[in-house]
Nucleic acid binder design. Sequence first.
DNA 1: TTGGGTATCATACAAACGTATGAATGAACT
DNA 2: AGTTCATTCATACGTTTGTATGATACCCAA
Lengths: 206, 206
Amino acid sequence: MGSGTREALLSAGRQLFAAHGYKGASVRAITGAARANLGAITYHFGSKAALYDAVLEQTLTPFRERLRVAANSAGSPLERVQSFVRAFFEHLYEHPELRGLMVRELSTEEPIPEAVLVTFQANFGALSRLIREGQAAGEIREGDPMMLALATAAQPVALNLVRPVLEQAGAVRFESPEARDRLVDNAIRFVVEGLAARGGDEGGLR
Amino acid sequence: MGSGTREALLSAGRQLFAAHGYKGASVRAITGAARANLGAITYHFGSKAALYDAVLEQTLTPFRERLRVAANSAGSPLERVQSFVRAFFEHLYEHPELRGLMVRELSTEEPIPEAVLVTFQANFGALSRLIREGQAAGEIREGDPMMLALATAAQPVALNLVRPVLEQAGAVRFESPEARDRLVDNAIRFVVEGLAARGGDEGGLR
DNA sequence: TTGGGTATCATACAAACGTATGAATGAACT
DNA sequence: AGTTCATTCATACGTTTGTATGATACCCAA
C-alpha cells in the first residue's frame, strides 16, 4: 500500500535535482526534505541513480502528452503550431522543475537518458509533422520542416532557459503574469512571422 | 614566469567544468588532466571556486568582445543583426566548452556569477539597441525591442543547447560543416522573417 | 495471539571530496 | 658559493558522499 514515502521521495527528488543538479542533490538532502529515513531511497528505488530516472520519467511523460494534445488540437496547421508553442511555454511555467531537469540533462556530456531522448523525438516529430502539413496547405513557407521546427521550438526552450538571468539581471520582469503573457505573445508572433507564407504565390520573400 | 601550470589548469578546468559541471569536475580530475600536482589549484587560485570564476571570466570575455564587434560591423541595422546572430553561432561552435559552462550556469538556482550577468547584459543590450535602430530606420517591424531581442537570441542559444540531443537522437546531423551551415542559415532566415517590417511603407529589404 | 511480510529506523563503512601542511626542488641574484 | 623565493610535490586531515546492515515497528492473515 502506498506509504507516501515513495511519492515524497519522487517529489523532493524532482525539486532538488532540478535546483542543484544530480550531484548537487545529496541522498541526505532528498530524504531529509521528504521526511524519510536515509535508507529510504535505497529501499524504494535501489539507488540514487534509479530515483533520478524515475523522476525524469515522471516529469517528462505529462509534458510529452500535453504537447501531443496541443499538436492535435483544432484549427489550421499554423494555428496548431501556435497552440503547440503556447502549451510548451505554459507547461514549463507551471512546472518550473522541468526547466532545471531539462537543462541539466542537456549540459552534461554524459549519455542522454532514454526518457529525455524519447520526449525530444516525440515533441520534435509532432512539431515538424505539423509544419509539413502547413506547407502542404500553403499556409507555411517553404523550407526544411525539421529546420523550421527547430527554429520554432527555440523560442520556448531558450526563453525559459534564460529566465533566471533575465530576472536577476533585471532586464525583463517575469514574475507578473502580464509580463509573462507579453513575452509569450511576442514569441508566438515571432514564430508566426518566421513561418508564414506570404505574397500572392506560395513563395516567401527573397 | 609562466610556469605553464596556471594556464594548463585553466584549460583543463574549462573543459572539465563544461563537460561534467562544477561538482562533477573534481580537483583531482582537473589537476590530473593538467598534469599538475593535486595542490596546484589551491596554490595558483586559492580554491576550486576561484578557479571556476577565473575560467568563467577567461571564457566569457572574448565572447562578449566578439559579439560587440559584430554588432558594430558595417551595414544596415538588420544586416548587423544577422552578423550578430552569425557570430553568436560561430563562437559557440568554435568554443564548445562555452556551451556547457553557459548552460550549467543557467540551470542552477544558485546566484548567477558576476561575469555571466555582465556578459548577458552586454550582449542583450547590444542586440536590443541594434533592433531599436532598425525600427527607427523602418527596417524592423514594431514591437518591444527587448522582446524582439530575446526572440532573436533564442535561435543561437537554443540551437546550441540542444545540439547533443540532436546528435544523439539522430534527428539532425551536426558534424558536417554543410549541415551546420544549413542550420545557421535557416536560423538567420527565420530571424529576418520574424523581425522584418513589411507592407507598402518604406519597410524592409528586398 | 501468533506468524510473516513490508516498511522504517539508527548506524556503519569505504570511497571520494576540497583543502592544509611542510619538505624538496630549481632557477635567479648577490 | 650562498641565499632567496616561487613552485612542485607527497601526504594527511576532516567532511561528505552513496550504499549496506541488522534491528525494530507495523499491519494483516491465520
